[in-house]
């Protein structure tokens, strides 16, 4: 197995791949997320967000005093479709 250094293990994003996206001119947290897939897997960035931003700060690509994480979309914890369905009033929709 080749040596790889992972930033995001959910979506298999390596440091090399992150740097490749940066070379293409991307530097914003939101666009790097979308281009590399980082943070879009089951953990939704809980493991990788700070690794990404540390890397961007270290490379001088973002201003540490203003950088923001990507949007923390719900759900932040697992919720099933069946439980969500229980949240509707009992009467059927017209």
């Amino acid at each position: 197995m080749p040596r790889r250094s992972f930033v995001c293990r959910c979506e298999d994003v390596t440091l090399l791949e992150l740097d490749h996206a940066i070379e293409l001119g991307l530097s914003e947290v939101e666009e790097l997320k979308r281009y590399t897939g980082l943070g879009t897997g089951p953990c939704q960035g809980k493991e990788c967000m700070s690794v990404l931003v540390s890397h961007l700060v270290r490379r001088g690509l973002v201003d540490p005093t203003t950088v923001q994480p990507f949007t923390a979309r719900p759900p932040t914890e697992p919720v099933t479709l069946g439980a969500l369905a229980a949240g509707l009033p009992a009467e059927p929709e017209s």
Binding site: Q44, R73, P75, P78, T80, L81, G82, L84, A85
Partner: peptide, 11 residues
């Protein structure tokens, strides 16, 4: 069968 599937994110 989707009742115990989990939502990953909404937007």
């Amino acid at each position: 069968l989707t009742a115990q599937l989990r939502v990953l994110r909404q937007w």
